[in-house]
Design a protein around this nucleic acid. Structure first.
Lengths: 336, 336
DNA sequence: CAGTGCGTCTTAAACGTTTTAGAAAGCCGT
DNA sequence: ACGGCTTTCTAAAACGTTTAAGACGCACTG
């Protein structure tokens, strides 16, 4: 009684042709009601499940989509993955995960895997993907949705978080708390996200008379670098905006170590709302990005393009982040 | 020049039959060297990539495996995923990610997706999966490797971390540091991992004359509960072993808040080596589990069963954790 | 009673491959 | 000149489905 049961087995058991079985299961109205019921019963009894690959092949359709990311272990990508998985499940697609392990060559391999029609399309958070390769896939009829990278909208859909708004949000909050001299602890400004968050910070400051901002850039966005950035700072600001929560945790630790009270003397805001934000000695006020939403929307746009290939118009969707207020920079109750 | 190029197109362009193209690409020795070269060149020029689904169908083979997990967002599962992805890539398989979002019904859906031959097998970290359903899949010829759950080895392969050894490791370290009265802050003892880690702790203590251990159980394994567990403790121990890093972070915070020095007065060890371990006010000494290895080995065993279906013997593989010494419980330099 | 139409089922083609069996052609030795 | 062998290619079946087209019987109509 073992082994896979094919549509043929059902047909044999019911004493009809395979076509009739197929019809009974997919379009019962074309089959005598009694027969249809009988076939359905038999199929259920035999525990028949259609071979999905064959169905797809027949239909010239593909019911899997791919998600290409640099590293699931990074919670940002994990959250994208989670959102994408949700959406894929919701649409009845299966999701093949392509984790490039931050390796450009592996990423390339995944792209040729896409070309072999395994997937109907892909949501990609690019690592090294060059435009040429992406175009190659598109020409093959494999839609791509890019994430977290600026893309000319005529080339395809994209989704991203509005990092400028995020930086602005954080700094506006610090200013509203009474801070005037703001320090921004940033990562490599060549990274778009870093540049954008800094730009948002500047916008906020520019609109606030009497406020001043300055920036210090560190090589790695981790706790140690955050701590280093303020450990030997000659002149302390009123508030610090870190473009990443790890940096913020380091900053808070270093400030406390210097005997500076947070938020008493200096307020601190982070970015990302990572796990560490709540675990920090002083729970971090930070900017929460709708990352799951990024994944979900990416898959949504992709499937829209896949299914409504006729009248699909590309779209560059941007999501607003929101502020999560915790202790490191509390809601202002400062009555001046 | 757009659209998918099929093997037929290559055949037409080369003026040969599709069979010859297939041979030229897959078994060139059966084809005249010159022709083979010409066909390969043409295939390359046309950018031909075989339709993987069709190939699989023809071969009665499947080149995808599934990974069923409760939630990628949880770093434990993310690390399993990463290991599984690595191994799948290494073997030329694609990995379809089934994130059940901690939902038993969704998990069931994924299992019927498996039955439809989309995947050659699955590595599953079960949430609610009952034995009956798993057996159903196995009877269909879909091999399953279970993770992180004790399974009778005759039913299939499994991989797990040796949690008993982990608990033992941590507590032995605390004892070696000079501690005698050990407190274990544990989660729900109905959870296998919690029970095992506690058992390991007890073993270590039992083998150490003069040592005593006691346990307190908290409802959630998070920072708040960890803090609560020691905040109002009447009698402080020499050392605390927390069966999870979040608990440990909470414990450290609460101890520091009480004016207890860590590791000066009390040493603390955690479990998991999560991100938070390094970020904690006092970097945590903790037990690192080879989680990626779990995923990698899971896929390895699965593919062994898939490919060498003849002489595969089931295996329950267990991985030893190792201790990561940081500041909360430093290497003993205590010269008694 | 021939013709028409309907309801029900089946035959066969198709999806894009691989592979088996065999055909065509060239060469060899007798 | 012929049978047999080798080399090189092709036709066709197969994988498990779906579906367009057609066959068969039956009731109805004129």
């Amino acid at each position: 009684m073992a082994g896979r049961v094919r549509i043929q087995d059902v047909a044999a058991a019911a004493g009809v042709s395979v076509a009739t079985v197929s019809n009974a299961l997919n379009r019962p109205e074309r089959v005598n009601a009694g027969t249809a019921a009988r076939i359905q019963r038999i199929a259920r009894e035999l525990d028949y499940v259609p071979h999905h690959g064959a169905v797809d092949l027949r239909h010239g359709r593909r019911s899997a989509i791919a998600l290409v990311i640099p590293d699931v272990t990074n919670s940002f990508y994990a959250r994208i993955t989670r959102g994408a998985a949700d959406a894929a499940y919701g649409h009845g697609f299966s999701l093949v995960l392509c984790d490039s392990n931050d390796d450009a060559e592996r990423e390339r391999d995944f792209f040729t895997m896409l070309a072999d029609q395994r997937a109907a399309g892909a949501v990609v958070v690019p690592r090294g993907a060059d435009r040429q390769r992406l175009d190659g896939l598109r020409r093959r009829g494999i839609p791509l949705v890019l994430t977290d990278r600026a893309v000319p909208v005529q080339e395809g859909c994209s989704v991203a978080v509005d990092d400028v708004a995020g930086g602005r949000l954080a700094v506006e909050h610090l200013l509203a708390g009474g801070a005037r001299r703001i320090l921004v602890v940033n990562g490599d400004r060549a990274i778009r996200q870093c540049a954008d968050r800094w730009q948002g910070a500047r916008q906020a400051v520019r609109e606030h008379r009497g406020a001043a901002v300055r920036q210090v850039s560190v090589p790695q966005m981790d706790v140690a670098c955050g701590a280093a950035a303020v450990r030997e700072l000659a002149e302390l600001p009123d508030a610090v905006f870190c473009t990443n929560d790890f940096l913020a945790v380091g900053v808070v630790q270093a400030l406390l170590a210097r005997g500076v009270r947070v938020p008493g003397d200096i307020t601190v805001a982070g970015f990302g709302d990572l796990d560490v934000a709540t675990v920090s000695a002083v729970p971090l006020t930070t900017v929460r990005q709708p990352v799951e939403e990024l994944g979900r929307a990416g898959v949504g746009l992709l499937l829209d393009e896949v299914e409504a290939v006729d009248d699909h118009t590309h779209e560059a969707r941007q999501f607003p982040p929101r502020l999560v207020v915790r202790e490191s920079a509390p809601r202002q109750e400062v009555l001046v």
